[in-house]
Design a binder for these strands. Structure first.
Lengths: 261, 261
DNA sequence: CGCGCGGTTGACAATGATCAAAAAAGGTGG
DNA sequence: CCACCTTTTTTGATCATTGTCAACCGCGCG
């Protein structure tokens, strides 16, 4: 339990009382084994403890769209709360272990453990951020830019987990990376070669070493043709005419016409 | 308060006691006005009541990446919980009203109102789903496929809000749509023309009428070249070798080697 | 040993990004 | 109401990037 919360980024003070009787179960998933099935109702949420998984949605035409990469600390299955069924499958990229949280006891667990509640919220927030970062990956027009961003993104996630930012062991196949970046898998291969020829990275199959992060960042820079967007469109502060206060950048802490409801 | 929860998809029974003294404030945002600023710390979360907003992240090269479209019932600002600052700005697409929830009193409000707590979780789950749906939009190779998907997606969201699924009034500019779909704004324009010439839709500036949803769905079908992916890759059920039980599709409700922790 | 799978590279056609410019819509001030 | 400006949208033309098809290599596995 304590380990779970540390995983999720919350340090439990030594004095914190944990209920040892709570139904926290550890699960092992073998490589390539599905942990959850698209379309299935959800009785358990999972928190990744070790290893990694991918979430995959099969589109109408059979194309397998990779939606996210779940690393230690990530929460799986929460997306099902809205519609009752999972929008995507989760498949282990390596032998992994996950904590299982029965949904019908979750309410009670959160009440008894405010820190768990906080940890879950933090994790949800993080995954929301990661989802929009995935959009950033696909935003670039050039394929090598997308790959460069992907590598830097992976590097950043490795750092969050306390791992080396330079040495990556990709558990995703080229095809999976292609799906995540929205390009053809041949193009991924070419982009790897291109970055490697530049000396930015060293590629040995799925082992990637980031040699020159500066240059890599430079190549990850241009989203699309430097034109209208980047021009000196002098967006000064005085065009704020809404609830925001120009002088303080901070969200509306006074309301023009507040009416309690 | 009751209105807030109905907005978020939770029906309050008439007997439900609401605390009238809770600090629920209604905010007005004028069109094009920012509600929240990228990089700013967050003191309030917002729930959209009427109108619509876009969340926008300015990338390193100045490109404005549109991340999500917030419609009534959506929660804004939660992404900031993880890092403490907002990853994106929120800008009103029309005159809108939002409920403001002070974060420092949120904990307390959730405790006093379990239904509010549930509503927030449901909303978070929904937004997680929407985020992955956004990835689906960008997954298609052809630009007209992306636009067709976008229109169907908007249509579905309109239905969720009880509006007509055929008649759309887009509050987004072509440039914004282009950003969301990951293509050039000229291409969006062309894709509109293409779909209109086909008779699938009727376009009058930002008013779009979906004439033939069947054909539109057909055009939204192909993600990429029908090849290896769509082949009869007979993915039968007996390749499950993990924690899942083949006979029941449901998540692991027994665990091979459970160890309570 | 042969087969299949993941990865790499090549060749070619096509889609879309980009540049350019005109047309339409929206807003402002007389 | 109209002239005038800005912004948005549309259309055109050109060229590069990349998707697609295809062949090839290396590897693990039955």
């Amino acid at each position: 339990m304590r380990a779970l919360m540390r995983l999720m980024g919350v340090n439990t003070p030594p004095t914190y009382r944990v209920d040892e009787a709570c139904p926290l179960v550890l699960c092992h998933v073998r490589q390539d084994a599905p942990l959850m099935h698209e379309g299935a109702p959800v009785h358990t949420l999972y928190v990744v403890r070790t290893g990694s998984l991918k979430t995959v949605k099969t589109l109408v035409d059979g194309y397998e769209q990779l939606l996210s990469l779940a690393l230690p600390g990530d929460l799986l299955g929460f997306e099902a709360l809205y519609q009752g069924t999972l929008p995507a499958s989760a498949i282990a990229l390596e032998d992994s272990t996950v904590f299982a949280l029965p949904v019908n006891r979750l309410q009670e667990m959160r009440q008894n453990h405010p820190l768990l509640d906080y940890a879950i919220h933090r994790t949800l927030s993080r995954q929301l951020v990661h989802a929009s970062e995935a959009a950033e990956l696909m935003a670039a027009v050039a394929s090598d830019v997308r790959l460069a961003r992907f590598l830097l993104w992976m590097s950043a996630r490795m750092v969050e987990l306390g791992q080396s930012p330079r040495r990556l062991l990709l558990r995703l196949s080229r095809r999976d990376i292609a799906s995540l970046l929205g390009i053809a898998h041949e193009t991924v291969s070419r982009a790897f070669s291109s970055l490697a020829d530049d000396g930015c990275i060293k590629v040995d199959n799925r082992e990637v070493e980031l040699l020159d992060i500066g240059r890599l960042t430079a190549r990850a820079g241009s989203t699309r043709g430097v034109s209208a967007e980047a021009r000196p469109r002098a967006r000064t502060a005085h065009d704020h005419n809404g609830v925001d206060v120009p002088s303080t950048w901070f969200g509306a802490d006074r309301w023009p016409d507040g009416e309690t409801s």
